[in-house]
Amino acid sequence: MLRKIASSYLLRRVAKALITIFVMASLTFFLIRLMPGSPVEAYIANLVTQYNVSYENAKQQAASLFSLDLNAPVYQQYLEYLGNLARGDLGESLISRGVPVSEIVLAYLPWTLFSIGTALIISFSLGIMLGMLMAYKRETKLDHILTNLGSIVSSVPDYLMGILILVWVGVQWELIDITNMRGSLSPGIQPGFNLTFIGDAFYHASLPIITYVLGTIGLWMLTMRGSTESTLGEDYVTVAKARGLKERRIATAYVGRNAALPPFTQLSISIALVFGGSLLIEWLFVYEGLGYLLYNAIQQRDYPVMQGVFLMITTMVIVANLLADLLYSRLDPRIRVAGRD
């Protein structure tokens, strides 16, 4: 069985992702539980002093909220925590009493996934197309302009980009109505598979999406430009010309297909960066995704929710990386056979 897992790239990769999530969950647990002045202790102390609850009662309340048994030894608490986690039980929110954390997190998650996913798809496809164009038109005016634009946008941090958009486009030039664009949906719009809903979702997500696109597109453009240029010098491209293939076919299946591999490997790294950046961006644009949720949770010291968001974000990053890796192994047949690691 183990040998079978080891021999299959897919299984190996999935196992690795699961292990990473497990390590991550454990770290989150120990951080919250064992840090000096841990949130649990702080919460208990808060209850005792503020509401004059007895220490025992406070402790019980804390235990139920964090879904932890605070009397048990740490390893037992840890096992219980893992058990709960496996059932998807992340405890309950401190602020919205009785609402499971998982429910809250899952309500905010789709918006983050939607905005980041859309942004990465747009930015990656646009970026590699522009990169290819630059390589085909290298040393022309167009190439110089795009190369400079690419380096400029990729060197500005995404939150700064967000602030610039907000301040210039929104406040100073008043080109867009930033107050109305807040939130993830306009009031009264019901989720459903119709144009009004989809249009409204895109309307509200547009500023975060533009920010993510601007923050990442420079990287794809510059990487793709470089890799296209070297691919153009490959023998199989010359041979494809000698074979009398049409320019279009050569540009897509021979040049583009191979040149897109290096930028694609950067996608994995980029996913984590964009997820991390989304915490600030969503707060900035008041977009109701995980980042926004986390910001509020931090403000209100809602520890279980914070823990839930952290876990969810890391899980998403790991899953996205896994998907990117699996997709890469489909794109490059050489990986499939040789395996990696």
Binding site: E234, D235, Y236, V239, A240, A253, Y254, R257, N258, L331, D332, P333, R334
Partner: peptide, 8 residues
Amino acid sequence: LNALNPVM
């Protein structure tokens, strides 16, 4: 050695 498209 390099005359064929590696992904095809």
